[in-house]
């Protein structure tokens, strides 16, 4: 498998060049957010109020890290299941969010919004949280510290391992991959 090394932030052209199934690494700056932070961001968007972090061009990682032990920038930090963010995601994509990192299925509405706005959905290996943490070189809380592990962090990442799960044309590795190995019907 060929690996594409990507530098963040990504522009639309870079995103449009990616295809589902591409193995990538990510280097640069990303933000984190999960259920509770998404809820707050969308409440601000709905009231037309400024966001604590502008989303245009950003890459968001769905993660709630474990506490860092001494000598580590961050505790174990693998992806959480993305579908819980689906009801909020189209509004974030409309703000210019360029890429998401998570694991698991996405809704039809999210995939349509990705096609419209030119966004990509990366997957990291669920549960490979200590391995992934090694590619996170720094971590800082930038919004909602009261949410603890669910606060919005800014991570600097270096050669973060990922795969393109759903590309900006709607091609979905979770549909094409399993079809190749399926031997039975329900």
């Amino acid at each position: 498998m060929k690996t594409v090394h990507l530098n963040l932030p990504l522009d639309e052209a870079a995103v449009r060049s990616l295809r589902a199934g591409d193995t990538v690494t990510l280097t640069g700056s990303i933000i984190t957010g999960r259920d509770a932070a998404h809820k707050r961001l969308v409440e601000l968007i709905d009231r037309d109020e400024p966001l604590p972090v502008p989303l245009a061009g950003e890459t968001i990682y769905y993660v709630g890290p474990a506490p860092a032990s001494p000598g580590h920038a961050v505790g174990s930090a693998g992806p959480t299941t993305s579908y819980r963010m689906d009801s909020y995601t189209p509004k974030l994509l409309a703000q210019g969010l360029r890429a998401m990192i998570g694991k698991g299925l996405r809704s039809r509405e999210v995939i349509e919004a990705m096609k419209t706005y030119g966004a990509v959905y990366f997957g990291a290996v669920g549960g490979a949280a200590a391995l992934i943490a090694r590619s996170i070189v720094s971590s800082e809380v930038i919004a909602y510290p009261d949410l603890g592990p669910e606060a919005i962090h800014r991570f600097q990442v270096k050669v973060f391992p990922a795969i393109v799960l759903i590309d900006s044309f709607g091609s979905n590795l979770y549909e094409t991959g399993p079809k190749l190995y399926r031997k039975s019907d329900l």
């Binding site: 505790g75 693998g78 549960g127 200590a130």
Partner: peptide, 18 residues
């Protein structure tokens, strides 16, 4: 990656999964 993750977590005594 899963196998390597087990190894790192045990060696560094950090959580296997967050």
């Amino acid at each position: 990656q899963i196998s390597e993750n087990y190894r790192i977590a045990a060696a560094e005594r950090v959580a296997i999964c967050q």
